[in-house]
Amino acid sequence: MKIKSLLISTTVATSLLLGACGNMDDDKDMKKSDDNKMESKMDKKDNMKDSKSNKMMKEGMFKGENKQMVEGKAMIKDNKLMLTDFKSSKGPDLHVYLTKNGDVKNGMKIDKVMYDKKEQTFDLKDVDMKDYDSVTIYCDKAHVVFGNAMLK
């Protein structure tokens, strides 16, 4: 009879001890879950900042350079570069670049630009606009800047 009591007591004590250990793991899981929620909220805030910086609107008017004519407006809005009322001197290989102070060598080539098409739109997905302050029309073949629009 004493052995049965001892076995039952031991079983109950072991069950309580293991049950308490399981509860401690639940507390750790709850804390991890709370930490993950906090990190997720912080990531969302960072993503919102990034999307806001990419969605900010900047615009500028083109000015011709190097005896070339470039006119019109460049506007960046909603991850798109839009050229309006655009026209430029004819060139054999004109491209639009995003640049810092008109520096084409360190700029980002966007696409071919049509010298005589008034309205043109280019996708700027995955472009960090804080690295650039101007839109440059550049002839790749002649290595000549036709004009710039400083963005504000």
Rank of each mutant, 00 (worst) to 15 (best):
Ser5Ala: 08
Leu7Thr: 00
Leu7Cys: 00
Leu7Ala: 05
Ile8Phe: 06
Ile8Asn: 03
Ser9Asp: 09
Thr11Asp: 01
Leu17Tyr: 10
Gly19Phe: 08
Gly19Trp: 11
Cys21Ile: 08
Asp26His: 05
Asp26Thr: 10
Lys28Phe: 09
Asp34Asn: 13
Asp34Trp: 06
Asp34Ser: 14
Asp34Thr: 12
Lys37Tyr: 08
Asp43Arg: 14
Asn47Thr: 04
Ser51Lys: 15
Ser53Tyr: 14
Met56Val: 10
Met57Asn: 03
Glu59Gln: 15
Glu59Thr: 08
Glu59Ile: 00
Lys63Arg: 09
Lys63Phe: 01
Lys63Pro: 00
Glu65Met: 13
Asn66Val: 01
Gln68Asp: 00
Val70Arg: 01
Val70Ser: 02
Glu71Cys: 01
Gly72Asp: 02
Ala74Val: 05
Ala74Asn: 02
Ile76Pro: 01
Asp78Phe: 10
Asn79Phe: 03
Lys80Pro: 03
Lys80Val: 05
Leu81His: 04
Met82Glu: 14
Leu83Glu: 07
Thr84Leu: 09
Phe86Thr: 05
Phe86Tyr: 15
Lys87Ala: 05
Ser89Glu: 03
Leu94Ile: 02
Leu98Phe: 07
Asp103Arg: 12
Ile110Thr: 05
Asp111Phe: 09
Lys112Met: 09
Lys112Trp: 03
Val113Tyr: 09
Val113Ile: 15
Met114Thr: 04
Tyr115Ile: 00
Asp116Gln: 06
Asp116Pro: 03
Leu124Thr: 07
Met129Ala: 01
Asp131His: 10
Asp133Lys: 12
Ser134Phe: 01
Ser134Asn: 07
Thr136Val: 06
Lys141Arg: 15
His143Lys: 15
Gly147Asp: 10
Gly147Pro: 11
Gly147His: 12
Gly147Leu: 05
Asn148Ser: 11
Ala149Leu: 11
Leu151Ser: 08
Lys152Met: 12
